[in-house]
Each structure stands twice: as C-alpha cells, then as structure tokens.
C-alpha cells in the first residue's frame, strides 16, 4: 500500500475521530440533562427530543459514537498491522454510516422538519468517510491491476 493511501487512512481516522466526538457530545447531552431545555432558533431541541432520537431505548447518538469508534479503531489497527482485510473493512464500513445519515437527514428534513447542527455535522463526517473509503477502494484496484 502506497504512502498516499496510508495518508487517506490517517484522514479517515481523523474524520472518524471528529464524528466520534460529535456523537459522544450528543450522547452526553442526552444522558446528563434530565430535562433538556428548549433552545431558541435551533432545531436541535425538536430533533434530539423527538421520538426518532432513540431506537428501542438506545439513543441513536450512542449508536453513532459506537460506529465512529469502530471505524477509528479499525483504521488505527490497519496503520499498526497493515492487514489487507482491515483495509477492505475501511472501504465498506462507511456505507453503513452513509445509509444511516441519508435516513436521519431525510427524517429531519421531511418528518421532524427541523435540522440539528450536530446531526448535520455527523452526516458530513459520514459522507466524507464514504468518499475516502471509495478512494481507498479505487487505489487498491489500480494497484492490483498494475501487478
């Protein structure tokens, strides 16, 4: 694997870290505010207190934090072990995040009709991860055809 694609994995780790922090923040907010106050001019109140904010009692923010954590750890493991299977995982895992983000953004736009900045940030990080994952996939294909 070239230095270039290793840099991409580093970038993915950084983006996943950002997404992780974002999701952890939302999760902490979810659990610390017994009574989440209403904030002016942001859609976060509507979004994070809506029925869609939890699935079977688990806040989706927590699921998001777990997802970003997984990508983060897989990326770091690859940087440590240089195992090709981990690289495959880095290309395909972000598809899960992209699909989840599409679902959550459509929920916000069409059902809840409010946007929460932290959720938009998460949608952006997961989209970035997906694109970087595609680039990794392309680079590997090129390398294989060169061999």
């Amino acid at each position: 694997m070239s230095i270039f694609s290793r840099r991409i994995i580093w970038a993915m780790v950084a983006v996943a870290f950002l997404g992780f922090l974002d999701a952890v923040f939302l999760t902490i907010e979810h659990y610390t505010n017994n009574i989440p106050p209403c904030f002016a001019l942001t859609g976060c109140e509507q979004v994070t207190t809506s029925v869609y904010a939890t699935v079977a009692g688990i806040p989706v923010a927590l699921a998001g934090a777990a997802y970003y954590f997984l990508i983060l750890v897989v990326g770091l493991l690859y940087l440590d072990l240089r195992n090709a299977k981990l690289l495959t995982a880095m290309s395909y895992l972000p598809i899960v995040g992209l699909l989840a983000s599409i679902y959550f953004v459509s929920l916000q736009l069409f059902v809840i009709k409010a946007l929460c900045l932290y959720c938009v940030v998460s949608a952006m990080t997961s989209t970035t991860l997906f694109i970087l994952g595609l680039i990794v996939l392309q680079l590997r294909k090129k390398e294989v055809s060169h061999e």
């Binding site: 952890v24 610390t32 440590d80």
Partner: peptide, 25 residues
C-alpha cells in the same frame, strides 16, 4: 513504537471524552 502509538491513541481518546463531558455539563 507500537506501544507508544496505542498509548497516545488511548490518552487522546480518554482525554477528549473527558473534556467533552466537562464541556457538555
């Protein structure tokens, strides 16, 4: 080097989650 790498990762992760918990509260 590997041990240092994972130690740094651990410290950064724990530190940032702890910091966030402070900010969030």
């Amino acid at each position: 080097r590997r041990i240092t790498f994972w130690l740094v990762v651990l410290v950064v992760l724990i530190g940032s989650v702890w910091g966030l918990a402070k900010v969030a509260s």
